[in-house]
Structure formats: structure tokens, C-alpha cells
Amino acid sequence: MTFSTELFRPHIGSYFDIYFDNQQQLRLLLQSVDDHGRSGQGYYSFSLMFFCDGEYQLVQDTYPLQHPVLGELNIFLVPIARKDQGICYQASFTLKVG
């Protein structure tokens, strides 16, 4: 599966879940898919913005996100802001094209 804006855009507004060894679950809502376009060096970049209710903040790391349609995806998440009683996370991608 190749990550792209086309893969994620239909799933804006859906949840991606992280399950931990202690049976805890964290739900991340995909809020936006931002296309950053192509560079002159043959790369394409985009980012995903997630929101999670609550106070618990994940550290910057790669997590196995479960989605009912996409299955399990290992995605590197960075906490970027605390707002509206929760935490915002960003996943950024830069892919070689062509």
C-alpha cells in the first residue's frame, strides 16, 4: 500500500485506533489531509492531522494505527498542539515520485 493523499482523504472524519499491551486503546480522529505538492527534486509531500480527546499525550514515535478499512498502518506521529480538551498530532510524508 502506497501512502498518498488519495489513500487518506476519503477517511477524513474517521477514527484510527492504537492498542497498547495493557489493553488500553487510544482513538485518533483524522481531521485533515494537507497536500504540500511536489518539489523540484522529484519529491511529493503531504501531512495528516489527527485529534485525540483527553489529557494523555503520546511521545513522538511510530505507532501501529488500526483503521476499519485501511487495516494496520505504522505511522510516525508528532504531538504538535494541545487544544479543545485534547492533543493534535501530525504525520508528515515525503515520497519520491516517478
Rank of each mutant, 00 (worst) to 15 (best):
Thr62Ala: 06
Tyr63Lys: 10
Tyr43Glu: 12
Gln41Cys: 07
Leu48Lys: 06
Gly54Ser: 05
Tyr44Leu: 11
Met49Phe: 04
Ser47Val: 09
Asp53Ser: 06
Tyr63Glu: 08
Cys52Val: 05
Tyr63Asn: 10
Leu65Gln: 04
Gly54Cys: 03
Pro64Gly: 01
Phe46Glu: 03
Val33Asn: 07
Phe51Ser: 04
Glu55Leu: 04
Ser39His: 10
Cys52Trp: 00
Gln41Glu: 13
Val33Ile: 11
Thr62His: 02
Gly54Arg: 07
Leu58Ala: 01
Glu55Ala: 05
Tyr44Met: 08
Asp61Arg: 08
Leu65Ile: 01
Val59Gln: 15
Gln57Arg: 13
Gly37Glu: 13
Phe50Met: 07
Asp35Phe: 05
Cys52Asp: 01
Gln60Glu: 15
Tyr43Thr: 15
Leu58Lys: 01
Tyr56Gln: 13
Asp35Ala: 00
Asp35Arg: 05
His36Ser: 11
Leu65Asp: 02
Gln57Ser: 13
Gln60Trp: 12
Thr62Val: 11
Gly54Ala: 03
Leu65Gly: 01
Leu58Arg: 01
Gln41Leu: 13
Met49Gly: 10
Ser47Cys: 09
Gly42Glu: 05
Gly54Leu: 06
Ser47Gln: 12
Leu48Gly: 04
Arg38Tyr: 14
Met49Arg: 11
Gly37Tyr: 07
Tyr44Asp: 07
Phe50Ser: 02
Ser39Asp: 15
Gly42Met: 02
Leu48Pro: 08
Tyr44Trp: 09
Phe50Asp: 01
Phe50Thr: 00
Gln41Asp: 15
Leu48Ala: 02
Ser39Arg: 12
Tyr56Met: 13
Asp61Gly: 00
Tyr44Asn: 07
His36Val: 10
Phe46Trp: 08
Gln57Asn: 06
Gly54Asp: 05
Asp61Gln: 12
His36Trp: 14
Arg38Leu: 15
Leu48Asn: 02
Val59His: 13
Leu58Ser: 06
Tyr44Cys: 08
Ser45Ala: 09
Leu58Thr: 04
Ser45Met: 04
Asp34Phe: 11
Tyr43Met: 13
Gly37Met: 14
Leu65Thr: 03
Leu48Ile: 04
Phe51Tyr: 08
Val33Phe: 10
Pro64Ser: 02
Gln41Arg: 13
Leu48Gln: 00
Arg38Pro: 12
Phe50Ile: 04
Gly37Asn: 10
Phe50Gln: 01
Tyr43Gln: 12
Glu55Pro: 03
Ser39Glu: 14
Gln41Ile: 04
Gln41Thr: 13
Leu48Phe: 04
Leu58Asn: 07
Tyr63His: 07
Pro64Leu: 09
Gly42Ala: 06
Thr62Tyr: 03
Tyr56Glu: 14
Glu55Ile: 06
Leu48Ser: 06
Phe50Trp: 04
Thr62Arg: 08
Phe51Arg: 01
Asp53Glu: 12
Val33Pro: 09
Glu55His: 05
Asp34Tyr: 15
Gln57Met: 14
Gly42Lys: 02
Leu58Phe: 00
Arg38Ala: 15
Cys52Met: 11
